[in-house]
């Protein structure tokens, strides 16, 4: 009940900010935004829900504080999918995670996708929802893959305008996730930390810091991941993702298909020593083992999470 009340306050702040004129947020609005994200409910450690785990979820209920659901999987749901969503909603706090809002698309937001995303948010009534700093659509082509945007002023303008459009219809806090930088652009004007920081400064938006993606980018592109975290607006980092990656042909890739490696655990621990987050999600997408095999990873993350709170 307390969490719901807090979430309502946050919604009110988000709606108030939407009614302002275009342009970057004022200092006052920025302060409001930071406060809004700080006051979100703290969920703990959870799992990116995959249907293969549906039956097992309930025998491991105590190890799963909340679930992140892929919003796209429940667009125009068939009756079994709708029943699944209702079952999950009745038993877990849910966070909808979008794959294709395409917040970095210079051609704007797809109205059909946004409408479907809004339906899920309205049904689930989450404390927050998320998508990625990426584009997945351009010139009518749906790439089906998260593609990075140049870290440039033009991208910041596009992201700002697209976020406004999204926040006009979705009235819960939105957090955006850093992706792996599979493509680097000659137009890049900002470092990773500057770009993420500016997205937060310009908008009423929080960050979903994917620790695995941060690790992969730091190794592939040779930078210090903790220096990036140090330079981020830490009160805007709401949630973390983690999972194992894979080293292939001289590069790390976000394969999401194996147990979390020691290097990534170390980074997760170091990040949590620097910031306080509301939730951590294990995001396994491929070669998904029985849930029992993932529980030790959840327990380990929880012990790091709790230690960071003490």
């Amino acid at each position: 009940m307390v969490a719901a009340a807090v979430a309502d306050v946050v919604v009110a702040v988000a709606v108030a900010a939407n009614s302002t004129s275009p342009g970057s947020m004022s200092d006052h609005q920025g302060h409001q935004a930071a406060e809004a994200y700080v006051s979100l409910p703290s969920y703990g450690v959870g799992l990116g829900f995959r249907p293969v785990h549906r039956e097992e979820l309930f025998s491991h209920r105590k190890s799963i504080d909340f679930l992140e659901i892929i919003a796209d999987h429940y667009f125009d749901p068939s009756p079994p999918k709708q029943a699944e969503l209702e079952l999950l909603q009745a038993n877990f706090p849910l966070i909808p995670h979008g794959l294709a809002l395409s917040i970095g698309s210079a051609e704007g937001i797809d109205a059909r996708y946004l409408s479907k995303f809004r339906s899920i948010v309205e049904q689930v009534r989450p404390a927050w929802c998320s998508d990625h700093i990426a584009f997945t659509r351009a010139g009518g082509i749906d790439i089906g893959h998260l593609t990075p945007v140049p870290k440039s002023r033009a991208s910041l303008d596009v992201i700002r305008d697209n976020l406004r459009r999204v926040q006009d219809v979705i009235h819960v806090p939105i957090i955006l996730e850093n992706i792996t930088e599979s493509i680097r652009y000659p137009e890049d004007e900002f470092s990773d930390a500057e770009f993420l920081g500016r997205i937060c400064d310009d908008n009423q938006v929080g960050l979903l810091l994917d620790v695995t993606n941060l690790y992969i980018n730091s190794v592939n592109h040779r930078f210090d991941p903790l220096e990036v975290v140090q330079r981020l607006p830490r009160d805007r980092i709401v949630q973390l993702h983690f999972v194992g990656g894979r080293f292939e042909e001289g590069l790390w890739v976000d394969s999401h298909d194996c147990a979390t490696q020691d290097e990534i655990w170390q980074l997760l621990e170091a990040v949590l020593a620097m910031i306080s987050v509301k939730g951590i999600i294990l995001e396994r997408d491929e070669r998904i083992p029985p849930l029992a095999e993932l529980i030790p990873e959840l327990d380990r993350a929880r012990s790091i999470f709790l230690a960071s709170k003490s």
Partner: peptide, 14 residues
């Protein structure tokens, strides 16, 4: 700048 970004994104998508 936005028009150029849109064209670049389309070229990349292609």
């Amino acid at each position: 700048c936005r028009d150029r970004l849109a064209l670049q994104q389309r070229a990349l998508a292609e």
